[in-house]
Amino acid sequence: MNLPVQKLRKNAVLPTRATAGSAGLDLYACLEAPLTIAPGELRQVPSGVAAALPQGTVGLLCGRSGLGVKHGITLSNSVGIIDSDYRGELIAGLCNVGSEPYTLMPGERFAQLLVVPVLFPEPQEAAQLPQTVRGKSGFGSSGK
């Protein structure tokens, strides 16, 4: 399967997979200069690219584990949703939940794009829902 990707800026880098088994495509920061993200700060980071996701899929923008664990840099909305009919630039909101400023360099990998199948169910009101063993129990009810 191919994923059509358009460079929107001259210094944009096409998304890549780190290994053949990598589920996500790494996105690269399309910045003119280094970008420092202070603790508690929210910043939008452009990738410089747009993609034509296949119909019946959704793009999930996810953080990179190394940035999160080592530096406290994560996505401000946890996971970004890219609908298959969106054709604009892929931009991620990053936040610094760490205790030190972090400087993102131009061309640095800053997020991942996963392309996954999605279902499109039509909500239908029901007087009752089918019963399950778990029922309405939630928030830790299945154990530690």
Rank of each mutant, 00 (worst) to 15 (best):
M1F: 08
N2M: 04
N2G: 05
L3G: 00
L3M: 05
L3K: 02
K7A: 07
L8C: 07
L8N: 08
K10V: 12
K10S: 13
V13N: 05
P15C: 02
R17H: 15
T19C: 10
T19Q: 10
A20I: 10
S22M: 14
S22Q: 13
A23G: 14
A23C: 08
D26W: 06
L27S: 00
A33L: 12
P39R: 15
P39N: 08
R43W: 10
Q44L: 15
Q44F: 13
V45P: 06
V45L: 09
V49N: 03
V49R: 04
L53S: 03
P54S: 09
Q55E: 15
G56K: 14
T57N: 12
L61M: 15
C62W: 11
C62G: 06
R64D: 09
S65T: 08
L67N: 02
V69K: 15
G72H: 13
I73A: 00
I73H: 02
T74G: 10
T74L: 08
T74I: 02
L75E: 00
L75D: 08
S76N: 11
N77Y: 02
S78M: 11
G80I: 02
G80F: 01
G80Y: 03
I82L: 13
D83Y: 02
D83L: 07
D83V: 09
S84F: 12
S84G: 11
S84K: 03
D85N: 12
E89F: 05
G93W: 05
C95T: 14
C95R: 14
C95K: 14
N96R: 08
G98V: 03
G98D: 04
S99Y: 14
S99P: 05
Y102F: 14
P106S: 06
P106G: 03
E108N: 05
E108G: 10
R109T: 06
Q112E: 04
L113H: 00
L113V: 01
L114D: 04
V115F: 11
V116L: 09
P117V: 09
P117W: 04
P117Q: 07
V118F: 07
V118C: 06
L119I: 03
P121R: 07
P123A: 05
P123S: 01
Q124C: 07
E125Y: 15
A126P: 00
A126D: 03
Q128P: 02
L129A: 04
L129W: 14
L129H: 06
L129T: 07
T132S: 06
T132V: 06
V133M: 14
G135F: 02
S137E: 11
G138F: 15
G140I: 02
G140V: 00
S141R: 13
